[in-house]
């Protein structure tokens, strides 16, 4: 990466914010697997590997998979958040590779959230 100047911060922010919100990134969906120590201990790596396999199998290019830290509710890990463009993010909990396959097929591909595994929809209050 080149050395940054102040104005670069704004540029990077705008570029990546677009990617974040899926709007201009050319992506239709984003799946975040929460991989803090708690998540990893509960099996987040298996969930992640399954997800990567599923995407490869489906040959999708408009879905981003990313990792993040602890989502806060350690007791319900492994957790993942699925965000489909234009819809609020849905958090899933107590995952395993079977469940994430189902979520991948129904929610990520067909756009229908899997209610039985979902914990909550929406974003948290930051202030």
């Amino acid at each position: 990466m080149q050395r940054l100047k102040i104005e670069d911060l704004q540029r990077i922010k705008e570029k990546h914010r677009a990617e974040f919100t899926l709007r201009e990134g050319g992506y239709r969906a984003k799946v975040t697997v929460h991989m803090g120590t708690c998540g990893i201990a509960a099996g987040a790596r298996t969930v992640m590997t399954t997800l990567i396999d599923e995407i490869a199998k489906a040959g999708l290019e408009d879905v981003i998979i990313t990792t993040s830290g602890c989502a806060g509710l350690c007791a319900r890990e492994p957790m993942a958040t699925v965000e489909i463009m234009g819809h609020p993010p849905v958090k899933y909990c107590d995952l395993n590779s079977e469940k994430i396959k189902e979520i991948f097929k129904d929610h990520v591909i067909d756009g229908k959230p899997v209610e039985k595994y979902a914990l909550v929809v929406g974003s948290e209050t930051t202030y």
């Binding site: 914990l119 909550v120 930051t126």
Partner: peptide, 26 residues
């Protein structure tokens, strides 16, 4: 699926320190 406001675990929290919790790739 309930929304954040329906679940007390999320409802009473306000994130400052944890503002990027679960949102960014660290």
């Amino acid at each position: 699926i309930p929304s954040m406001r329906d679940i007390p675990f999320f409802k009473y929290q306000v994130l400052r320190v944890l503002r990027n919790k679960g949102l960014i790739d660290p």
